[in-house]
Amino acid sequence: MSKHLFLTGEKKVGKSSAIKKFLSIAQQDFSGYQTQPVIINERIRGYALHSFEALDEEENDVIISVRAGVRRNICVEGIFDTIGVKIIQAAVAADAELVIIDELGKLEDNAPDFQAAIKQLLDSNHRVLGVLQKKESKMSALLNERDDCEIIEISEADRDMAVDKISQWYRG
């Protein structure tokens, strides 16, 4: 079994939901972050990073992208290399064995400091459970190069088994 596990697959197939369900069942201490939609007038207008570690109010739930069309988001420049790095550093410093990274993808392609922080996290003693967008990106290349990362694809047909796959991986 690999030290780190990332779920990939089409959008809205249930990758993040599987991780949330696993966390509620396992009742495991964890750190890291999740990406949350920014909703205005009942529509998704962008996404924000929500750290599981305590950060200053101005640094948590900071907007990382703005919706600019159907399935098109524009990255807010500099957020990953500043706040994103701080979130990863807080996760590495936390006592939790498990770090949640929900999610990684193309938005991080122009964030070299954030990419370096993710690499340091993967090299640390922490185990990482995350979501990887099903797109070619610098982050997908980084994870595919590593022997300690397993990437499994979740589809609608097998998404109900995703929590079992995560549990098996975690028990090792």
Rank of each mutant, 00 (worst) to 15 (best):
E59D: 15
D164R: 08
E10I: 15
V70C: 00
I44V: 13
L142F: 00
G105Q: 04
K20L: 13
R43W: 02
D61E: 13
F52C: 06
Y47K: 10
Q115H: 00
G9A: 09
L5H: 06
I100E: 08
L129C: 05
L142G: 00
I151W: 02
K138G: 03
F114K: 00
I79E: 02
D147G: 04
C75R: 13
D113A: 15
S137G: 09
Y170M: 08
K12H: 12
I118G: 05
I44T: 15
V99Q: 01
E136K: 06
S24H: 08
K86I: 06
Q36M: 11
E53Y: 05
V99F: 02
A116V: 03
D160T: 11
I63F: 05
G78D: 10
I100W: 06
F30C: 04
D164S: 12
N73R: 11
S155V: 02
G9K: 07
S155W: 00
I63Q: 14
I101A: 08
A162W: 03
G14H: 03
K11R: 14
S17Q: 15
N125A: 15
Y47D: 03
E58K: 14
M139A: 12
D61S: 11
V92F: 03
I166D: 04
V163Q: 07
N41Y: 09
D113N: 13
N60L: 11
E97L: 10
I88D: 03
A26C: 05
Q115D: 01
Y47V: 04
N41C: 12
V163I: 10
R45D: 12
L104D: 03
V38N: 01
E153Y: 06
N110S: 12
S51C: 14
I74F: 10
S31C: 05
V128F: 04
A117S: 12
T82V: 12
R71E: 15
K21L: 07
D160P: 00
A48L: 13
D95N: 14
A141Q: 14
R127F: 06
N73L: 13
Q89G: 08
V70D: 13
L55M: 15
S51G: 11
L121Q: 06
I88E: 03
I63H: 02
I88W: 03
M139H: 02
E57I: 15
P37G: 03
K15N: 05
A68N: 13
M161I: 05
G9L: 10
L142K: 03
V163D: 06
K11Y: 07
